[in-house]
């Protein structure tokens, strides 16, 4: 368990399983990574749980590197500490994003498709030559499920598109003024 590669494997697996909804079990981790070693399944489970608790706490308190170092100091060997700190450095930002998305209870936007048409003629109008943009938004709920109610289609003529774009530019201005734009 003091082998950095094996320990890092536990951390990588933990990230996938707890935060990225991977459905693999710890038995699989044991089989895949520890089958050539004398580490028992129980030991892997115990280490997994220990790392899970530490990570949960670090996330909850939003630890920076220094406080993370203090957090792992007592319960882990030097090699393990080094791996864990490196893991936190690399993944902190990504985990933060995942954590936000986990508590996004509203829909999110899964996909946006659009097409621009030039309407030339219809049954009642001989000549139109009116460009329209057709937009399809696919929404996704927190369970990652798409359903047909969540597909929105609409079209906009030039002036409507400009109005909408104006709103979008307003949002961008607000983001910039609050230095939130990343």
């Amino acid at each position: 368990m003091n082998n950095p590669k094996l320990f890092s494997n536990i951390l990588g697996f933990l990230l996938n399983k707890e935060y990225e909804d991977d459905t693999l079990t710890i038995e699989t981790l044991h089989e895949m990574v520890f089958s050539e070693t004398d580490v028992s399944l129980e030991n892997v489970e115990a280490m997994y749980d220990k790392c899970k608790q530490v990570l949960k706490k670090a996330i909850y308190l939003d630890h920076n590197i220094t406080s993370f170092e203090t957090l792992v100091k007592e319960d882990f060997t030097d090699v393990q500490q080094e791996c864990f700190i490196k893991f936190w450095k690399i993944n902190k930002k990504k985990i933060h994003e995942i954590i936000y998305k986990k508590t996004r209870f509203n829909n999110s936007l899964d996909k946006i498709n659009w097409r621009i048409d030039l309407k030339t003629k219809s049954k009642n109008v001989n000549e139109m030559n009116e460009p329209v943009s057709i937009v399809e938004l696919k929404l996704k709920n927190n369970n990652n499920k798409l359903n047909s109610n969540n597909i929105i289609k609409f079209e906009m003529d030039k002036s409507q598109l400009e109005e909408t774009l104006q709103q979008i530019n307003n949002i961008q201005k607000h983001l910039q003024s609050k230095s939130m734009a990343s």
Binding site: Y60, L61, I99, Y100, T103, V135, F154, E155, M156, Q160
Partner: peptide, 26 residues
């Protein structure tokens, strides 16, 4: 334009900018 059918028209677009400050997870 009015008489040509359409797939749907956008009639309202509202937005809110906010900051999620804390949650049960952090």
């Amino acid at each position: 334009m009015e008489k040509a059918f359409s797939i749907g028209k956008l009639v309202d677009f509202q937005w809110k900018l906010g900051v999620a400050t804390s949650s049960s997870l952090t």
